[in-house]
Structures are given as C-alpha cells and as structure tokens.
C-alpha cells in the first residue's frame, strides 16, 4: 500500500511558487537600480534617508508603548476573569474578536469624530494627545492577538492551582501576579508582544489619518515617488517581520509545558 505523494507535492510546489516568486522577484528588482549591474544602491539610498530612521524610530517607540499598555490592560483582566469571574469569559472573548470584525478604518473614524479637538476628551487637540490616541488605537488593533497569547499562556500553567498554592504560602495579590504569574506567562506575553510589533511597525491607515510621522505613511510616500526603493523597503519589511516571528518561534522553546498544553 504505497501512498501516492504526487498530489501533495504538486500542491505544495505550486503554493511555494506563489509565495516565493514575488519575494525573489522583489529582491532582484531591488538590486537593479544601477542600469548596468546588480547593486545594493536601492538599499544605500533607503538607509541614507534620515526620514527612514526618523519614521522607523517613531513607529518603534509607539510599538513599545503599545506593547506596555496592551500588557497592562490584558494581563490583569485575563487573570481575574479566569480566576474569579469565569462567567465573563465569553463576553471577553467576543470583545477581543470585535477588532477583527470592525475594520480599523471604521474605528479610527469613530475616534476622530469622538475625540476631536472640540470634544470632551480632545486627544487630537495636541501632538502628545494624538500620540496617545495612536497608541491606544494600536492596542485595540493588537488586542485579539495579545489576548489570545496571554490566555493561552495562562491556560498552560493552570493559574488557579498556582494562585492557591501561593496563597497557602502566604503571598498577597500583588506578589502572586508579580512573582508567580508574570514570570510563568512571560513567554506568552513576549509572543504577543512580537506579534503586536509586527502589526504596528508598518501600519499605515491609522497613522496616516491621525497625521503622525510613522513608518507606514513614509512607505506610501516612497512608493509614489520612487521606483527601486519600494522594492528594497519591501524586502527590509519582510526581514523585520521574519525577525519578529522568528523571535516568537525561538521563545516557544522556552514556554512552560504542562499537560494542559495537550488538551
């Protein structure tokens, strides 16, 4: 009974071609800036643009704040809902799915209408306020992923038993979260963090509508003005995304493993 592997291989090769050819073509395209030979001129051009570093740096900082705020919002909520208010869990799952269902564009439109300079909470009235609003919008954008990462992490370590054990040992609530729960779900949080980073770093829509000098709008600007630099930037972005995902993979090896993981 020899299994015929012709079809699986054919499907795999066709799929691989669809995914690899654009990358390869983009890479070669990015090397053709000089007329007579392949060169890294497009990359040199990208890296010699101060706006590249300025916008990338800005998005990096916003990304870091997004991760911090996201963790502060998600971790305590998931912990207490799992532990004390399991009846809230379905509502929480539904809420964290909403950002996948309501387009980011729609939400940011709502923010602009709701938090304009003449409103009760005028986020967009100042530069700092707009930065905060951008961060909050990104937290919302990444919420489904952050929530799932943290929730998976907590399911794996069975926080109920851990918490009871810590309480018997005399730990208080702050000690339990800070010294027991957080270290154990650190890998899960970091996975969520890198995913958040991958989503936020090149985000275009919200940053452009809030008129912040982020990496995404910068990319679009380059795209309309240049020919070869966009290809180089696409490759650079791909490498950055690969880096973030690679980190998640590497981290996965350090994740705590319990029987709960198998269920």
């Amino acid at each position: 009974m020899k299994t015929n592997k012709f079809w699986p291989w054919l499907i795999f090769i066709l799929g691989a071609a669809y995914f690899i050819i654009p990358l390869l073509a983009t890479f070669i395209f990015s090397l053709r800036m000089r007329r007579d030979a392949l060169s890294f001129d497009a990359y040199v051009s990208v890296f010699s643009d101060p706006k590249f570093f300025a916008t990338f740096g800005y998005s990096l900082v916003v990304g870091v704040f997004t991760i911090i705020v996201g963790v502060l919002v998600v971790v305590p909520a998931v912990y207490f809902v799992r532990l004390r208010m399991p009846w809230l869990k379905p509502i929480m799952e539904f809420t964290t799915l909403l950002p996948l269902m309501i387009p980011a564009l729609v939400l940011v439109y709502g923010y602009i209408r709701l938090y304009g300079s003449s409103s009760l909470i005028p986020f967009t009235g100042s530069v700092l306020g707009t930065d905060i609003l951008l961060t909050c919008a990104y937290v919302m954008l990444a919420l489904p992923y952050m929530y799932r990462a943290v929730d998976n992490g907590m399911r794996t370590i069975d926080i109920g038993t851990l918490t009871e054990a810590a309480q018997i040992a005399g730990a208080n609530q702050v000690q339990i979260i800070g010294q027991i729960i957080l270290p154990n779900i650190l890998v899960a949080i970091l996975s969520g963090a890198f995913l958040t980073f991958a989503i936020v770093i090149g985000e275009f829509t919200i940053a452009s509508l809030l008129a912040r000098p982020a990496f995404g709008p910068y990319l679009v600007g380059i795209g309309t003005n240049r020919a070869y630099e966009p290809a180089a930037l696409a490759i650079i972005s791909f490498v950055i995304t690969w880096g973030a995902m690679g980190m998640i993979n590497v981290l996965g090896r350090f994740a705590p493993r319990t029987s709960a993981r198998n269920t």
Partner: peptide, 22 residues
Amino acid sequence: TFSGVASNFAGVPLAFAFIASL
C-alpha cells in the same frame, strides 16, 4: 513559520512586492 510571517506581511510592503513582481 513562513505562514506566520506571510500572514503578517500585509499592507504597504506587500503592495510594493507585487508591484515589483507583477
């Protein structure tokens, strides 16, 4: 692993890659 990367490789860079290819 590649799927994890590609599913997040959306937005502007993806458009650039397809313009450079197709």
